[in-house]
Amino acid sequence: MLKEITTPFKPELIESLRCGEDLLISGFAFTMRDASLSRTSKLLSEGMPLPFDLDCSLIFYAGPTPPTRDKPFGAIGPTTSARLDGYLEMLFKLGVAATLGKGPRTAEAVLLHSEYMRVYFAAVGGLGALYARHVRSHEIVAFPELGCEAVSRVELDRFPALVAIDSEGRDFFQKEYRTWSGSFSD
């Protein structure tokens, strides 16, 4: 049985999660990526209010395909987290409890997790058709003109992910690469 967690994430829950744990995540998350993070950063630098509240939230780095006749979208899945690391401290300062994306993060970003006591969940890239079955609704909350890069609120339904960086800054990826690099066992 996998551990199940639900948003919003309270600090006690975040601090209890351990690097390498497999989880099922339910509840609301915000999708954000390159253009919407850039827009958010610009609003903050101009002293403008943000059209969403990120306290205790989960940010899903994603840009889904458009809605179809009977579904909120066809495919949805994680985009590369490391590419968005420059915005991570901004998100943590806004109260974001966790991010969900794909791939390892930069050394600086790993450190921010222990500094702010936050976690990073990793999912597998290229499973958009499968993951769509774990995302129930989709509602644009800001920057609709950005198309797939708009900020949207999605409802996760037992979305499978792994704790890749925990609140003590332990990094799953670096540990695994040390284990598996080198010659095959045979």
Binding site: G74, A75, I76, G126, L127, G128, A129, L130, A132
Partner: peptide
Amino acid sequence: LLLENAFLAGENSVPICQ
């Protein structure tokens, strides 16, 4: 999972990846 994803995409005419 990659194979399952490909199967679902083909069966339902859904993109393999977003």
